[in-house]
Amino acid sequence: MGDAESAQVNVASKMGFKSGDIVQELGYDDDIDFDLRDDLEDIIDSELLTEEDHDVADAVILWWRAEDGDLVDGLVDSQTTLDEGGPIWLLTPKAGRAGHVSPADIQEAAPTAGLHVTKTEGVSSEWAATRLVARRKN
Score class of each variant (00 low, 15 high):
Asp83His: 11
Glu67Ala: 15
Trp64Ile: 04
Arg136Met: 04
Ala7Arg: 15
Ser102Phe: 00
Ala4Met: 15
Ala98Lys: 12
Pro93Arg: 06
Thr112Ala: 02
Leu26Tyr: 06
Glu51Met: 12
Pro87Cys: 08
Leu132Ile: 03
Lys94Pro: 01
Ser19Pro: 02
Gly86Cys: 07
Asp53Val: 09
Gly2Glu: 15
Ser6Asn: 15
Ala129Leu: 04
Gly16Met: 07
Glu108Gly: 02
Ser78Val: 07
Gly27Gln: 05
Pro103Gln: 06
Ala95Val: 12
Asp83Val: 06
Lys137Ala: 08
Lys18Arg: 10
Leu36Thr: 08
Asp35Arg: 13
Trp64Asn: 03
Leu62Asn: 07
Ala134Ser: 10
Glu108Asn: 09
Ala12Gln: 10
Asp29Asn: 09
Gly20Glu: 05
Ser102Asp: 03
Thr112Lys: 07
Leu90Ser: 01
Gly69Tyr: 10
Lys14Phe: 11
Asp3Leu: 15
Asp45Thr: 12
Gly122Ser: 09
Ile44Pro: 05
Leu75Val: 06
Ala134Tyr: 00
Gln107Ala: 05
Ala95Thr: 13
Glu41Lys: 15
Asp38His: 14
Ala134His: 03
Ser6Trp: 13
Val133Ser: 00
Gly122Lys: 06
Glu84Ala: 15
Glu52Trp: 11
Met1Pro: 13
Asp73Glu: 15
Asp73Trp: 06
Val11Glu: 03
Thr112Gln: 11
Gln107Gly: 10
Asp68Gln: 03
Thr92Gln: 03
Leu82Asn: 09
Gln107Tyr: 02
Gly2Pro: 13
Glu51Trp: 08
Ala110Phe: 01
Arg97Pro: 00
Lys137Pro: 02
Val117Asn: 02
Ala128Thr: 10
Trp127Glu: 05
Ala110Gln: 04
Phe34Thr: 05
Asp73Gly: 05
Lys18Gln: 11
Gln107Ser: 09
Leu71Tyr: 04
Pro87Ser: 05
His116Cys: 01
Arg37Ile: 02
Phe34Ile: 05
Lys119Pro: 02
Val9Pro: 03
Glu108Ile: 04
Asp21Cys: 03
Ser19Ala: 12
Glu121Pro: 02
Glu41Ile: 10
Gly2Val: 11
Gly114Tyr: 00
Val117Pro: 01
Arg131Pro: 00
Val76Trp: 05
Ala113Pro: 00
Leu40Gly: 07
Asp58Pro: 07
Phe17Glu: 04
Gly85Ser: 11
Glu41Asp: 13
Thr81Asn: 14
Ser13Trp: 08
Glu84Leu: 14
Ala12Trp: 06
Ser102Gly: 03
Val101Trp: 04
Ala113Arg: 01
Ala7Glu: 14
Asp68Ala: 12
Asp45Met: 11
Gly99Glu: 05
Asp105His: 03
Glu25Cys: 09
Thr80Ala: 05
Asp53Pro: 11
Ile106Cys: 01
Glu126Ala: 11
Thr81Gly: 04
Glu126Met: 11
Ile88Ser: 07
Glu84Asn: 14
Ala134Lys: 08
Gly27Arg: 03
Ala57Leu: 13
Ala98Gln: 12
Val23Lys: 04
Val60Lys: 08
Leu48Tyr: 13
Ser46Met: 14
Glu108Arg: 11
